[in-house]
Write a protein that binds this DNA or RNA. Structure first.
Length: 186
DNA sequence: CGGCAGATACGCT
DNA sequence: GCGTATCTGCCGT
């Protein structure tokens, strides 16, 4: 998807409605992106704010790769790297709606019921078996893929402030599909 | 159902 | 040392 190489906010909106698929042991675990957040180098909430480090190096790499980080001692969260190589920007995937492999996703989540299976950034990583092993992977091909989609119309997108951060909290850089039940928080 | 504490390990200061 | 782009269970209303 060409738009990933441009502005991270444009990319965050553009990724809504597109799908992520991780094939694990021959089973395609696939979901539609319903909630995203943009993170940019100029932004104190971003891991890339203090420059390139071993942990954040992937954010400064080419667009379309996965940036997976480990947090709170137990959770993984996944991003899709955006912007030109050299710029530290990425879009956090905060929620997806299952499309295929839903039974396996629920199993991976200790049989979570209803929207609880994928309605949060760490939950969807657990459901899709995304860990540090996927960090840096090119999502244009391979077992972890991004599947492009037509752009979602602006009227279907809700703009909000980002969740769980303590710096630059006022940026309207969170986007989600209006009325989608898998969105993490209204 | 809303609020809060606890879990738990890693990167960076 | 300290803070963390979170989740879950447990408590009270």
């Amino acid at each position: 998807m060409d738009e990933l190489g441009g502005d991270v906010v444009v990319a965050a909106r553009r990724l809504l409605g597109c799908e992520i698929e991780h094939t694990v042991d021959g089973v395609a675990l696939r979901g539609r992106i319903v909630e995203t957040e943009a993170y940019h180098q100029s932004d104190a909430a971003s891991h890339s704010y203090r420059g390139k480090t071993p942990r954040t190096a992937v954010m400064f790499g080419p667009p379309g790769h996965a940036y997976v980080y480990f947090t709170y001692g137990m959770h993984y969260c996944m991003n899709i790297v955006t912007g030109p190589a050299g710029e530290g920007s990425a879009v956090l995937i905060r929620a997806i709606e299952p499309v295929s492999g839903e039974a396996q996703m629920r199993h991976n989540r200790r049989d979570a019921a209803g929207v609880l299976v994928t309605n949060g950034p760490a939950k969807l990583c657990q459901a899709l078996v995304i860990t540090g092993a996927q960090n840096g992977q090119d999502m244009r091909s391979g077992p972890l893929r991004l599947i492009a989609c037509p752009a979602v119309s602006s009227s279907a997108i809700v703009v909000a402030t980002r969740i769980g951060i303590s710096h630059d909290t006022d940026r309207p850089w969170r986007f989600y599909l209006r009325d989608n039940p898998f969105v993490s928080k209204r």
